[in-house]
Simulated assay, not measured.
Amino acid sequence: MEKSNELSEDLRRRIVDLQKLERSLGAVYKQLQIPRSSVQTNVCKYKLFRCVTTLSRSGRRPKLSPSDERKLVRMCRNHRDSSLP
């Protein structure tokens, strides 16, 4: 199954607004024509965090800092003719 894109913030806000009007999940997903699981996930996230914005995600930190990355690029540009050891 292919991973899909995120819902826009506007669409997430509309989902929450319709849910606040005491519409059922089925009515919301039929009206907006998006998967029921997306509606359910967004409603649960709103109840938990009280916001519809995209939250930060966890993940591995980059090994190189931005300054180290710039130094590495600069070294590669200056020494194009050298080979790897």
Rank of each mutant, 00 (worst) to 15 (best):
K3Q: 15
K3C: 12
N5D: 10
N5K: 07
E6D: 10
L7V: 05
S8T: 15
E9N: 01
D10P: 03
L11R: 04
L11Y: 03
R13F: 10
V16Y: 04
Q19A: 14
L21G: 00
G26Q: 05
A27P: 01
A27G: 06
A27M: 10
Y29K: 09
K30T: 13
K30D: 11
Q31N: 13
Q31Y: 14
Q31C: 15
L32M: 14
Q33G: 08
R36W: 09
R36N: 10
S38Y: 08
V39Y: 03
V39M: 08
V39P: 04
T41F: 06
T41G: 06
N42I: 05
N42A: 03
V43R: 00
C44M: 13
Y46E: 03
L48G: 06
L48E: 12
L48T: 14
L48D: 08
F49M: 13
F49R: 15
R50E: 14
R50I: 08
C51P: 02
V52D: 03
T53I: 06
T53W: 11
T54E: 15
R57E: 12
R60Y: 05
R60K: 09
R61T: 10
L64I: 02
P66S: 02
D68N: 10
R70Q: 01
R70I: 09
K71P: 00
V73E: 00
M75R: 15
N78I: 07
H79C: 06
H79K: 14
S83G: 14
P85V: 04
